[in-house]
Amino acid sequence: MSNLIPVHPLEKRWIYVVLGVIALFLGAIFYTALVHQVHPPGAIETIDSATLHLGGEFAEDKLGVRTDADGHLRATLVAARYGFYPREIRVPEGLPITFRIASADVLHGMHVPMTNLDTMVVPGYVSTVTTTFPKPGEYPMLCNEYCGMGHDHMWSKVIVVSRESWKAAAPQTGR
């Protein structure tokens, strides 16, 4: 084949580099998927964005962080132009917490810098992400999908508290 189409040695070298990069990326994807269990969201769950507030999981009084009956932490949020509601949540460091978030209007993104919490919030769908916050502190929760003129002001606060002070403030249980 190489006799039919002459390939310049420099070009050949670049082909190897590109193949190497592709192999590296694929390797990273397989490694994180197989070893660290990082997967794209599997279950597709739909919801009516227009009636979110009328009742059910995303009703106004159901939002926030609570502990389920089995002891698992769950944060229920709504993204709407221009903020995440509730505007401030407290979560513990080092404990797995599942975020459930829906959009009340247009496409949003939920991103907490310096953590791996990052998901698109597509109107009509519920986004579910489980994560663990490694370090206590105050973090912004930002919208990273352009959603309109106030997009750059769309952020809320996530306060990660140490496990000790989380236990001390236990009454959040059962909400």
Partner: peptide
């Protein structure tokens, strides 16, 4: 954390 009034 106030978006401009114009935004909406």
């Amino acid at each position: 954390i106030l978006p401009s009034c114009n935004a909406c």
